[in-house]
């Protein structure tokens, strides 16, 4: 199986006063196409920093990141934006839906940005809402949806432009246990349908649902195990 994600000697330092603090200190790993990896570790170990670098919303101090064979660590702002739009799906802990838009319109947002026509994006958004089980809630605003429903809309939004990879940052962090379990099932279905997933989590159930678990501590990978 070919590597969807190739990370080599990734270092990320932040200036803090006169000193520089390393959040990542040389991380190297690959994620295969169609794989489902969970990055786990204690708070402050560098999980989210790593996810930001994989998601091309931050730049490494050194090292390289390639997604689908394309180097993304030094892209210009415009090309990075374009890459995120078409190749990466983001799911956030706090959903971050646009409150002014309906569930369907939230999904249409990246589709519109990608230049899809009105009818086509409406059809695509409806199909995605059906996929996440919210076909009947398309006209609802985020404030009218439960936490779990909002996260489903966020996942549908992440899938809008058929990305190569979905990156999720604590996707069950704001959900109760039952809704969290529904979310885990959704991620499994997503992966079973061929989407590569990298998830950063404290949630053991979610981590166990992944095929692979990467353990991090103090900015380095300290363990990498296949769950099954």
């Amino acid at each position: 199986m070919s590597a969807m994600l190739e990370v080599r000697a990734l270092v990320r330092e932040y200036p803090m006063g006169d000193e520089r603090v390393a959040a990542l200190r040389g991380v190297t790993f690959d994620v295969d196409d169609g794989d489902y990896a969970a990055i786990v570790g204690p708070s402050g170990c560098g999980k989210s920093t790593l996810l930001n670098l994989l998601g091309v919303i931050d730049r490494p101090t050194s090292g390289t990141v390639a997604i689908g064979g394309e180097r993304v660590d030094q892209l210009s702002d415009g090309r990075a934006t374009e890459f995120r739009l078409r190749r990466i799906g983001f799911v956030f802990q706090r959903f971050y839906l646009m409150q002014a838009l309906s569930a369907r319109e939230n999904i249409e947002l990246p589709l519109a940005e990608a230049g899809l026509g009105k009818v086509a994006r409406r059809d695509r958004a409806r199909a995605l809402l059906d996929y996440v089980g919210l076909g009947a809630r398309e006209g609802h605003r985020p404030s009218q949806l439960s936490g779990g429903e909002q996260q489903r809309v966020a996942i549908a939004r992440a899938l809008a432009n058929s990305p190569k990879i979905v990156l999720a940052d604590e996707p069950t962090g704001e959900l109760d246990a039952r809704t969290g379990a529904e979310m885990i099932a959704l991620f499994e279905r997503l992966n079973a349908d061929g989407t590569t997933i990298v998830v950063v989590t404290h949630d053991e159930d979610l981590a166990r649902a992944a095929r692979r678990m990467i353990h991090m501590r103090d900015g380095v990978i300290v363990g990498d195990e296949r769950a099954r």
Binding site: G55, I57, D77, G78, T81, E82, F83, R84, L85, R86, I88, F90, F92, Y96, M98, L109, P110, E113, A114, R157, A158, N161
Partner: peptide, 11 residues
């Protein structure tokens, strides 16, 4: 968030 999901700066 909009920037993260790929919305261009100019938009």
């Amino acid at each position: 968030v909009m920037r993260a999901i790929g919305v261009h700066r100019w938009r």
